[in-house]
Write a protein that binds this DNA or RNA. Structure first.
Length: 271
DNA sequence: CCCAAGACCTGGCGGC
DNA sequence: TGCCGCCAGGTCTTGG
């Protein structure tokens, strides 16, 4: 999936095109996403004006007045804006057409994404209710991570990738942030000092904010709303560089698996 | 509660 | 060229 910067880039990219616009037709070509697309989705959405386009973690939230649309892009999902009448390609599962001739189109080859409807405030939805703080917002900081980590014996990388601890830190940026902070990904989360968590928090914020600023990293599937790939991946220091030299010390970067996720780090620079 | 592993999918790549 | 195993940006669910 898109990581948080890609989701935010998507959100900010679609917002000006659909905010205060009215949904005219909803087409579900394949409802088999992570959870089935609700059968009544068209009825809920058609005739609604989009009142806001927000994000919580990696969920994109459309306020439709009588309810909220919750979107998640999974591993391979993307949202694009196309002109009404543009033919759908493979994996274009859901279209949300607006009355000004624009279609918001969800493509998701692996179908790990989600399209859900809720009539409650979306943050009360079971999937969002227990999420940790936003990494770029208040409520996330060295003290918070330090306290949350006490007693935890698992590696710090799986710890910061747990959305119930902090949202939006995916595999790419977890690797990058730990490199920048000089912390080994497999170090027990509960045995890291407050000072080192301060460095980690700064690194997480830095790497995410920079990626958002650059419009999101692209590795494979992500395409922004203009249909052009992002270009941030060449700036990655460790992710995808196992076996290559560390940009700081030149040592060969180690590659291993942690929590079943590919993990790259420098044995010399990260302790 | 914490943690590791399994589950859900398709497509692209390297190796034989 | 074809087939096969492995890998991929997430995260919910299950079992110990």
């Amino acid at each position: 999936m898109p990581e948080l910067p890609e989701v935010e880039t998507t959100r900010s990219g679609i917002e000006p095109h659909i905010l205060h616009r009215t949904i005219s037709v909803v087409t579900v070509r394949d409802p088999r996403l992570r959870w089935p697309v609700p059968p009544g989705l068209s009825g809920h959405l058609e005739g609604c004006e989009v009142r806001s386009v927000k994000r919580r973690g990696k969920y994109i939230l459309l306020d439709c007045g009588r309810g909220h649309l919750i979107l998640h892009l999974g591993m391979s999902g993307s949202l694009r804006l196309v002109a009404e009448g543009t033919s759908a390609a493979a994996h274009d599962h859901v279209d949300i057409q607006f009355d000004h001739g624009v279609v918001l189109r969800l493509r998701d080859p692996r179908r790990f994404g989600a399209v859900l409807w809720t009539e409650e405030p979306p943050v009360q939805h079971p999937l969002l209710r227990d999420l940790g703080p936003e990494p770029l917002g208040g409520g996330f900081g060295p003290d918070y991570l330090y306290k949350r980590s006490r007693g935890r014996r698992g590696g710090v990388k799986p710890f910061i990738m747990d959305g119930h601890v902090v949202v939006g830190v995916g595999n790419i940026y977890a690797n990058e942030a730990l490199f920048i902070a000089g912390i080994r990904p497999d170090r027990a989360a509960g045995r890291i000092s407050r000072a080192r968590y301060a460095a980690l928090v700064a690194a997480i914020r830095d790497v995410l904010a920079q990626a958002i600023e650059k419009g999101g990293t692209t590795l494979r599937d992500f395409v922004n709303d203009a249909g052009k790939p992002g270009y941030f991946s060449q700036q990655l220091q460790v992710y995808g560089r196992g076996g290559e030299p560390c940009t700081r010390c030149g040592a060969v970067l180690a590659e291993t698996r942690l929590g079943q996720r590919s993990t790259v780090f420098c044995r010399h620079c990260q302790r």
